[in-house]
Amino acid sequence: MEAPITSPPTLKYNATPKRKPILGKRYIMIYNVFQALGSIICTLQVFAFLEILHVVLGIVKSSLAPTLAQVLGRNHVLLVGLLYCPTVQFHWGVPLMVFFWGISELIRFPYYIAQAYNECPPFLTWLRYNAFIVLYPIGFAAENILWYEMLPIMLEDRIHFLDMPNWFNFSFNYYYFALIWITLTFLLFPKQYLYMFSLRKKKQQQALAEAEDMSRSAKKTK
Rank of each mutant, 00 (worst) to 15 (best):
P137S: 01
S104W: 00
E105C: 01
L135M: 06
V94H: 00
M97P: 03
L57V: 09
P190N: 05
N166W: 04
F170K: 12
F99G: 09
P86W: 00
S104A: 15
A69M: 14
Q205Y: 12
Y27K: 14
A69D: 04
K12E: 13
L44A: 15
A142F: 03
K191M: 11
T6K: 15
L78S: 01
T185E: 15
L68R: 02
C120E: 09
Y27F: 14
W147Y: 15
L83G: 02
K222W: 07
Q205W: 09
Q192T: 07
Y117A: 09
M1V: 13
I30N: 08
A209P: 03
M214R: 14
L11H: 09
H54L: 14
P17D: 07
K61F: 03
L146G: 02
A211D: 10
Y136V: 06
P95E: 01
F186V: 05
K220W: 00
V60P: 07
A116S: 15
F170N: 09
Y27V: 10
Q115T: 11
Q115H: 07
P165R: 05
P95L: 00
M164W: 11
V77M: 10
L37S: 14
W92T: 04
F100N: 01
A218C: 05
L188Q: 05
V46N: 06
K220Q: 12
E119M: 12
L79S: 01
I30Y: 11
H54E: 11
P95S: 01
K20Q: 14
L124P: 06
P121G: 04
E51T: 12
E212T: 07
K219P: 00
G58K: 06
A207V: 09
Q45A: 07
K219D: 10
S171W: 06
V46G: 05
M150N: 04
E51L: 15
L96Q: 02
G81C: 01
Q204T: 06
K61Q: 14
Y129V: 01
E212K: 12
L199W: 06
Q205V: 02
N144T: 03
F132L: 01
F132T: 00
S217Q: 14
N75E: 07
S171M: 04
Q70E: 13
M29E: 11
Q45V: 06
D163G: 04
K219E: 12
T183Y: 02
L151M: 11
C42D: 13
A3W: 08
P165C: 06
A211T: 08
S171H: 12
A141D: 02
A48K: 06
V46I: 15
E149P: 01
F189M: 03
A207M: 13
L184P: 00
V77P: 08
N166Q: 07
L124G: 04
A141W: 14
E105S: 03
L68A: 10
P165G: 05
F99Y: 04
Y111S: 03
F168E: 15
H54Q: 13
L23I: 13
E143P: 03
I107L: 03
S217D: 13
L79I: 02
S198K: 10
I159N: 03
Y148K: 09
A36Q: 11
A141E: 05
F177C: 09
M164R: 12
I138E: 05
L188N: 08
E105A: 04
N118C: 08
I22D: 08
A15R: 13
L155D: 14
V56I: 15
L53Q: 11
I113W: 13
T10M: 11
